[in-house]
């Protein structure tokens, strides 16, 4: 039915090409992350401008990121004035490749959409395809404001893994929408859901790094040496929080838009369908996460664990609920 199979085939080819580039980007990023050379303060400064609001000024030095071990503190201060130090070549190449991969990836999404002349969110494969490209774009945009290239390995790796699943387990041939999805609400509800997933994912990786960094700061085990170059865990925590907060708002929007769509499609805005249940669970967990930050007795590590539980429910909601649970949201396209 009016499916341009040539374009759909092109899309598949583009996905493969993007995957190859992602793989190479991931390798370069990994060299940057685990490579022995230490980052210089000038590079780090950009990543750690933030600091806790009511820490005394006299303590400032202790709370700003120290990408170098303490003994190099002084030299770092000095070099801060002289501007750019040794560039992180691995990270730079990684980012350039990531941009290239993202371009191929965007082309893959566009050709897929054009092949069926509709929004590319009709089934799980398309959902993954879009979610991954949005994740990369969010990552690149955030990088303009704040250097988070240290996340590159995980971002590229995660995208690679997801695309691998998309063209195998989730693979769905290009086709028109089923009537249940054929509504303008798909263009409102789904992209924001995808954006939320991407934001919450990036926030979760930051939370992982925060936990590792915290362990490095306190115990400094050998296997965490590479974490010495990260911004301070307290900075990672704040950044993770900021992104999660944006993700929480977009998720709230997703939930509300979903309820409005549900009223249009199923005659009630809320009916505890399994997808609705899990969307609610995700929402409540992130609400708890936001509360935990302001609750006494909840240290940053514990709060980060809540963040990770949050992303686990997001992933569960997308995979297990879509594929194995009975419900009205049976749109995986996996037949």
């Amino acid at each position: 039915m009016d499916v341009n199979t040539d374009l759909a085939m092109w899309s598949n080819q583009l996905i493969i090409s993007a995957m190859v580039v992602y793989a190479v980007a991931m390798i370069f990023y990994a060299f940057d992350l685990f490579g022995g050379r230490e980052l210089k303060q000038s590079e780090a400064g950009a990543t750690s401008a933030a600091k806790p609001s009511n820490v005394r000024r006299t303590n400032r030095k202790a709370t700003t990121a120290l990408l170098d071990p303490p003994q190099t503190d002084v030299s770092a201060e000095i070099s801060a004035g002289t501007g750019k130090e040794k560039p992180r070549r691995g990270a730079r190449i990684g980012t350039s490749l990531l941009v290239l991969a993202a371009l191929l990836h965007v082309a893959a999404v566009l050709t897929r959409a054009l092949s069926v002349m509709r929004v590319p969110w009709g089934n799980m494969m398309e959902y993954v395809l879009t979610a991954t490209v949005i994740t990369v774009i969010v990552f690149l945009i955030v990088n303009v404001k704040k250097d988070i290239r240290y996340l590159g390995t995980i971002v590229a790796g995660g995208v690679l893994l997801c695309l691998g699943l998309a063209i195998t387990v989730f693979y769905t041939p290009a086709a028109k929408l089923i009537p249940a999805l054929d509504s303008y609400w798909i263009a409102i509800h789904v992209p924001i859901a995808i954006l939320s997933t991407s934001l919450l994912y990036i926030s979760a990786i930051l939370a992982v790094f925060q936990i590792l960094k915290n362990s490095q700061e306190t115990k400094d085990p050998k296997w965490l040496r590479f974490m010495r170059r990260m911004p301070a865990s307290i900075d990672l925590e704040r950044f993770s929080y900021t992104i999660a907060a944006v993700g929480f708002i977009t998720w709230t929007f997703t939930l509300i838009a979903g309820a409005i769509w549900a009223e249009v499609a199923w005659s009630r805005y809320w009916g505890w369908d399994s997808k609705e249940i899990w969307t609610f669970v995700v929402w409540v967990i992130y609400a708890a996460y936001l509360h935990a930050r302001a609750t006494r007795g909840w240290g940053p590590t514990k709060v980060a664990v809540l963040n990770l539980i949050g992303i686990a429910t997001v992933i569960f909601n997308f995979t297990v609920v879509n594929m194995y649970f009975n419900g009205l949201h049976s749109y995986s396209g996996l037949g």
Partner: peptide
């Protein structure tokens, strides 16, 4: 560092 965070929470 942990102490500072606690301060902040308080």
């Amino acid at each position: 560092m942990a102490k500072k965070t606690a301060d902040k929470k308080a």
